[in-house]
Design a protein around this nucleic acid. Structure first.
Lengths: 222, 222
DNA sequence: GATTAAATTTGTCAAGTGTCCTAATTTTGT
DNA sequence: ACAAAATTAGGACACTTGACAAATTTAATC
């Protein structure tokens, strides 16, 4: 689902928004810069993503890089946009699905997200973003916006399964489910100690979440 | 529980292991350095925790700092030890508890952990450690060791509630529960968008986890 | 009070950081 | 072919970073 082209490995997915003017060569340069930046971010972390190393990684001079991205903040923001956009197209695919039972759809979403978590890209990038979001309001807002979109399909499924819940209760439940899965990143993500337990964890999550949504009542919210 | 002395705010908890020789003044210096480093880490993130800023923060010269910690790695490792130790004493407190039902003990543990997550210290430090652990094997090992201790009480409680499960199944279940709660850091931790939803999330977690542990069967593990 | 260890200062080092600026070169539309 | 726009190269700036090597001061002990 998410790995549309397994041919280009070590070149993670990005969704770069089209630019207005410019020549073809410029567009390529633009894209290869973002790709190199992402590669560095994934492979060596945010600290390694310096302007010079990004320039060297896509084999251009520093001065050229600053032509495309005058300031590093520009680069970071555009990279963040591109990365986040690449996830948002996944959620689109989730929403448009066949007509199966809401319980089954919930299970499928969980499986999808947990499989994505095992990806090197996701395992590496998101903790980095979480850390950045603690001190950078822009990153915080952008990442929370992404998660809000990720919760949307959960939300409507919960409403189907348990219509008695209020809007707030539904949203909190979706938040809990989403956060639960994100938490597994540090433990069962790519190259993590419990990576091989992920199949079991998927089963546990699927069962636990479905049961939780089904059986929770108003009174459980105090 | 965790805030033993609310008097000293902005001076988070640390458990510093005693040093061998040296004068009293040296021990004070040692401690104030670690405290300043932690303060910087919490308030401005790992990037701000440079040797010079740490030195400035505790009002000593850079050369003096390198006398205590010849290399930055030394400082980071000792800080990590001190931080992690401060959490481990909490777990000790959890293990030695009254004789109530295992279900209730599970709920209490969840409440305790989720309350700790709302702490500024925890919300700020752990994402930073998660990010570091992606590229620093030492940090990864140290933090996973901490979580292993955090899962121990969960593990024994699960065994009480559902003795039919195998050791591996129990451990995976404990892992899931622990990871679930950690995931809430990014969403409902200190200063996060859903900080005020934490009470509900605690209820959801408590109910969900207890029910999950009670009702899960061998067959659910495929 | 002298001696020895501990603690602190001061200065320097090479390497790396983001940003800016100007001159050349290439590409494109006409 | 030509001019305009886009792209590249190269260097410089001011600053930060971690590490190191003396000197100098402070503290404990005989």
């Amino acid at each position: 689902m998410k790995q549309s082209s397994p041919a280009k490995f070590s070149v993670p997915d990005l969704l770069i928004r089209e630019r207005e003017g410019g020549y073809a060569r410029g567009r390529e340069g633009h894209e290869s810069i973002l790709r190199a930046a992402l590669h560095l971010l994934v492979e060596e972390g945010y600290r390694a993503m310096s302007m010079r190393r990004v320039a060297a990684a896509c084999d251009i001079k520093l001065g050229n890089l600053t032509y495309y991205f005058p300031t590093k903040e520009d680069l970071v923001r555009e990279l963040l946009d591109a990365v986040i956009s690449s996830y948002e197209v996944e959620f689109e695919a989730i929403i448009h699905e066949e007509d199966v039972s809401p319980e089954q759809r919930l299970e499928e979403i969980c499986t999808l997200i947990l499989e994505d978590i095992r990806t090197k890209k996701t395992t590496r990038i998101f903790p980095e973003l979480w850390a950045l979001s603690n001190h950078d309001p822009f990153v915080l807002e952008r990442i929370q916006e992404l998660y809000a979109r990720a919760r949307a399909p959960l939300n409507s499924i919960i409403a189907e399964i348990n219509p008695a819940l209020s809007v707030d209760q539904r949203e909190t439940l979706a938040l809990f489910i989403s956060a639960s899965m994100e938490g597994l990143t540090v433990f069962a993500g790519y190259d993590k100690p419990f990576e091989n337990r992920m199949p079991w964890l998927e089963r546990i999550a699927a069962k636990g979440f479905v049961q939780l949504v089904k059986t929770i009542r108003q009174s459980d919210f105090e």
